[in-house]
């Protein structure tokens, strides 16, 4: 609809700043961001975080929550998508919540992330070696086995989990559970 010919220079600057396409056929500049949050564990705090995403129409791909070493403080890893302006909004709105202690967008930082995946498959004598090979390659474990089914556990970055699921899929997945990502900034030895 719009293109550079009809826009004033100021409008072009604004669009670029917003991470919006300037020409109609420009690719939308949507990125995936991993945000970690330290949250004071008061009544309804977690709800306030997730509710903020839906109330403001932000995407929330995954959330993982767990305790930390600190009493009444939990740690969230959120995965969201949006253009730069949306992401900036997400961060500001998270910061505005009274219960959030630290909000950190680790996406462009050195960080480590892991996801846990549990996957249950049916097997037969002839498919079993192939399945075991896959699990071996992904450094997974068999955590439950019956004469018909096996349950595997794999941890790793999300890309590895996706690849693992991709490999298992042809064998038929009975049940799948993913934890969502947990992430943390990496501390390089020479920094410390």
């Amino acid at each position: 609809m719009t293109d550079t010919a009809t826009l004033t220079s100021q409008q072009i600057i604004r669009k670029k700043a917003a991470g919006e396409p300037v020409n109609a056929d420009d690719a939308p500049m949507v990125h995936r961001h991993v945000i970690t949050v330290l949250l004071e564990n008061s009544i309804g705090a977690l709800n306030r975080v997730t509710n903020m995403f839906s109330a403001r129409g932000f995407n929330l791909e995954s959330v993982s929550v767990g305790e930390t070493d600190r009493d009444r403080v939990s740690r969230l890893t959120l995965v969201t998508t949006g253009n730069d302006r949306i992401i900036a909004q997400v961060l500001q709105q998270l910061n505005n919540l009274v219960d959030t202690l630290v909000v950190d967008d680790v996406t462009n930082q050195e960080y480590v992330e892991r996801e846990l995946c549990l996957i249950k498959v049916s097997y037969e004598a002839e498919t079993r070696p192939a399945l075991m090979d896959i699990v071996e390659i992904f450094r997974g474990n068999v955590i439950n086995i019956t004469p018909e089914t096996m349950t595997f556990e794999v941890t790793g970055p999300t890309s590895k989990i996706n690849a693992f699921i991709g490999m298992i899929k042809p064998h038929g997945i009975n049940e799948l559970a993913r934890s969502g990502r947990v992430a943390m900034r990496r501390h390089l030895a020479f920094e410390a």
Binding site: I13, A17, R85, Q89, Q92, N96
Partner: peptide, 13 residues
């Protein structure tokens, strides 16, 4: 005063 209000609707210079 509200950081979330800045560049919410219109990116500012």
């Amino acid at each position: 005063i509200d950081p979330a209000c800045i560049s919410k609707n219109v990116p500012v210079d």
